[in-house]
Amino acid sequence: MKVKVRYYASFRDVTGKQEEWLDVPEGTTVQGIREHVRGLYESIARREQVLVAVNGAFPALDRVIEEGDDVAFFPPVSGG
């Protein structure tokens, strides 16, 4: 299954990409896609906190990713 993921802030810098398509097995969870991305990028793997949003919300880690989901990876936020 192909899933489009986007990277924000320092994650865009370290991946060198705003977005990319990942090929992951059907039934992949949020935790699973996070491990997949940690496996692709050592600098993300080293981070203590890797936040994953799906469709504009913070999902449970066992939520299954579906085709067409809007998945975003980013570091801890610092607005305000």
């Binding site: 924000y8 802030a9 320092s10 980013f74 570091p75 801890p76 936020v77 610092s78 607005g79 305000g80």
Partner: peptide
């Protein structure tokens, strides 16, 4: 400050620094 996806980058004499949490 905990959960809205917004990030600051500060320009310092040491370079440009992402603020994360």
């Amino acid at each position: 400050k905990k959960r809205v996806p917004i990030w600051k980058r500060e320009y310092t004499p040491d370079g440009v620094v992402w603020v994360e949490g």
